[in-house]
């Protein structure tokens, strides 16, 4: 015989209902107040909030550092601007979240103008992103399609009027007022001075870049998404790279996780994310990819884990090319894992 069910007495029921009613009342109150939220009254003090000030107060160190970069034949056009995560929007408005969500610490800006022609001016933006990885992330996701390689640096490119580069933990932009050979010479001189004057950690690097297979790799195509890669919350620190194989452009991705269990969980999470958003399982001729290939609205997605890595193929038009690249990527990652185990 099991334990006897205790009879609930009327006063107990009444008290319980009263408590539930109070909780419901509180919940309702919070809900109503929440939907009646007035930002000017709660959360922010408009009276003390400054109207946009433009250039924020510069620190002497930043001013000295940026003034030391003035190219020959140019002079500073304005005060050094220094921005922190709180006021970055004053400088770049709606683009600020891109940086603040990627570890941004400080932006220093300076404009240089030609002493011979005032229409020739350039603005220097030095973003301190905290780590080389963060700097690479904002550099890579904004990389222009028409980019041309620039200088001896690994992560640097130019467009018709601008230069973009990663120098250690710094992401640097030099934006010219117009297309001009003289202006470009001056901007190139600034980048040389940055490399000479701005101290960085020489050992800081991005190990994941060496994990992508080299064959058919499209140079300069690697991007790093620190959060929400492909719209999936679980996919963080995700590198993507483009390949040109069999006349098809295919994008591979990989993310190094803390351990194999985490990698397994993230791979499973992303697979389920795809299925929950309309993907369907797809047959594959390659045994090692069984159960890892899905059709996502006419494109092929592949996701797998091996060791501490989550990797795969994103939105490929051609399944054969996608599987070929996935196999190469899987083999490359296994090699890396094996050689690490043998060390």
């Amino acid at each position: 015989m099991g334990p006897a069910r205790r009879r609930v007495r009327r006063p107990e029921s009444a008290i319980s209902f009263c408590l539930l009613a109070v909780l419901l009342f509180i919940g309702l109150g919070v809900f109503i107040k929440q939907s009646d939220f007035e930002m000017a009254r709660f959360g922010i003090n408009v009276a003390t909030a400054e109207l946009p000030l433009g250039e924020s107060e510069e620190s002497k160190d930043d001013q000295t550092a940026l003034n030391s970069l003035v190219p020959t034949g140019f002079e500073t056009l304005s005060k050094t601007g220094v921005y922190n995560p709180e006021n970055l929007y004053e400088k770049i408005n709606g683009k600020a979240p891109l940086y603040t969500e990627s570890g941004f610490e400080k932006l220093s800006t300076q404009r240089y103008v030609s002493t011979a022609d005032e229409s020739l001016w350039a603005e220097l933006y030095v973003y301190d992103m905290g780590t080389v990885k963060n700097a690479f992330s904002v550099y890579s996701v904004q990389r222009r399609a028409e980019a041309e390689p620039f200088g001896p640096m690994r992560f640097a490119y130019r467009t018709a009027n601008a230069l973009y580069l990663v120098h250690g933990k710094y992401y640097v932009e030099l934006v010219g007022s117009t297309e001009s050979a003289e202006l470009f010479r001056a901007m190139a001189e600034v980048t040389r001075k940055i490399r000479a004057n701005l101290t960085i950690d020489p050992n800081a690097g991005i190990a994941e870049l060496a994990l992508f297979p080299e064959e058919d790799f499209v140079a300069g195509s690697v991007k790093l998404y620190l959060v929400n890669a492909f719209g999936s919350e679980g996919l963080t620190d995700t590198f993507t790279a483009r390949y040109k194989l069999d006349d098809e452009t295919v994008a591979a991705f990989l993310s190094r996780r803390s351990d194999p269990q985490d990698a397994q969980a993230v791979a499973k999470g992303y697979y389920e994310f795809l299925i929950n958003n309309g993907a369907t399982s797809k047959q594959t001729a390659k045994k090692i990819l069984e159960g890892k290939v899905v059709d996502f609205y006419g494109t092929t997605e592949i996701v797998f884990d091996t060791g501490p890595f989550v990797a795969g193929i994103h939105e490929a038009e051609n399944q054969q090319a996608a599987e070929k690249l996935a196999e190469r990527l899987l083999n490359k990652l296994r090699e890396v894992i094996n050689s690490a185990n043998n060390e």
Binding site: I92, G94, K95, Q142, E146, N161, A162, E173, V175
Partner: peptide, 12 residues
């Protein structure tokens, strides 16, 4: 087309 609202490059 890209990198708005500031842009920065003519190629945008």
């Amino acid at each position: 087309m890209t990198n708005g609202p500031t842009g920065g490059s003519i190629s945008d």
